[in-house]
C-alpha cells in the first residue's frame, strides 16, 4: 500500500511537472472539489430544474417525489 501511495505521488509529481503546475495538495483538493461541485450542480439543475420537455417529462415524477423541488 505504501508502495502504491509512493507511486501515486510519483505520478502526480510527473503530471505536475508536465503541466508546469505546482500546487499544494490542499489547493489541489479544493480545485477538484470546486469543479466536481460545479458539475454536480449543473447536472442536478439539468435533471431537476430544466424545462426541456424530454428531460422534464422523464423526471417529472421524481421532482414531485422529492417534495421540495418545484415543478409546474
Amino acid at each position: 500500500m505504501i508502495k502504491l501511495i509512493r507511486e501515486g505521488n510519483s505520478v502526480e509529481r510527473i503530471i505536475n511537472a508536465w503541466l508546469n503546475l505546482v500546487v499544494s495538495e490542499q489547493a489541489s483538493f479544493f480545485i477538484k472539489s470546486g469543479i466536481f461541485l460545479f458539475v454536480c450542480g449543473a447536472t442536478l439543475f439539468f435533471a431537476l430544474g430544466a424545462s426541456y420537455p424530454a428531460v422534464h417529462d422523464t423526471l417529472h415524477n421524481v421532482r414531485h417525489a422529492l417534495a421540495v423541488v418545484p415543478c409546474h
Binding site: I15, C40, S51, Y52
Partner: peptide
C-alpha cells in the same frame, strides 16, 4: 448525494491529477 460527495472527497484527497471532463448542458425553454 452525501455519499457521492464522501467518495469524491476520499478520491480527491490522494488521487493523482486526472482529466475532468465537464459537460455543459444548454437548457432550452419550452
Amino acid at each position: 448525494l452525501f455519499f457521492l460527495g464522501f467518495i469524491a472527497g476520499r478520491v480527491f484527497t490522494s488521487a493523482p491529477k486526472g482529466i475532468v471532463i465537464i459537460v455543459f448542458a444548454l437548457l432550452a425553454a419550452s
